[in-house]
């Protein structure tokens, strides 16, 4: 079953499976909303249940479509071909290599920490460290040694100041201060 192996190796099934699990949790929650109909009319639970069923069917269609596409690709790849044809079969651009995934995970983690510490540290401190973290993830100034570190700190402070001027000064929006100080 080479085509199935190809499909499962591609990782295309991961997102449909995550959506499937989320839909199941959503459906379980929807079933807590009480009866499907009330006085002959749809109740609050009607729409979520309909959406869940529609989602299961759509996910099935997605997975069937993906397996078919992989099978076609596999058939084409197995056939003898010219150099031009091989060029046409180049895979679509996707993040490849572990460094892309490390950067992705780092940005998500830094952003999560920013959300969790936004009120505790206050806007200024949290935003400074958030900016610093992001700049590091983008490898800003890495080739410049100690000067690069200093540059990172200055730019992170400048971004925080810019955001403060933009939100608090220009539009008068109150931003959180450090909880320890209040």
């Amino acid at each position: 079953m080479p085509e199935k192996l190809s499909y499962f190796r591609s990782g295309d099934w991961i997102l449909p499976i995550i959506i499937f699990i989320s839909t199941t949790a959503y459906l379980v929650e929807a079933l807590q909303n009480g009866s499907f109909f009330r006085y002959g009319l749809p109740s609050a639970g009607f729409m979520p249940i309909v959406l869940s069923v529609a989602m299961y069917l759509s996910l099935l269609a997605v997975i069937v479509g993906q397996i078919r596409r992989h099978k076609v690709r596999h058939d084409i790849e197995s056939a003898p071909r010219s150099l031009e044809e091989m060029h046409d079969l180049e895979p679509s651009v996707r993040p490849s290599g572990s460094s892309a995934y490390v950067s992705l995970a780092a940005v998500i983690l830094i952003s999560l920490l920013y959300v969790l510490l936004f009120r505790k540290l206050g806007f200024a401190v949290a935003t400074f460290f958030f900016s610093l973290g992001l700049l590091s993830t983008f490898r800003f100034g890495w080739s410049k040694g100690f000067l690069g570190i200093a540059l990172n700190i200055v730019v992170a402070a400048a971004i925080s100041l810019f955001a403060y001027l933009f939100f608090a000064v220009l539009f008068g929006i109150q931003l959180p201060k450090m909880e320890l100080l209040t």
């Binding site: 806007f123 958030f130 992001l134 700049l135 800003f140 971004i159 933009f166």
Partner: peptide
């Protein structure tokens, strides 16, 4: 410079999400 540009955008986006409802 993309690092500076997208770091600034990230800050504006995250703080922007907060200021709509003042909800973390």
């Amino acid at each position: 410079n993309k690092a500076v540009l997208f770091s600034s955008i990230a800050v504006v986006a995250m703080v922007g999400a907060y200021v709509s409802t003042f909800s973390v």
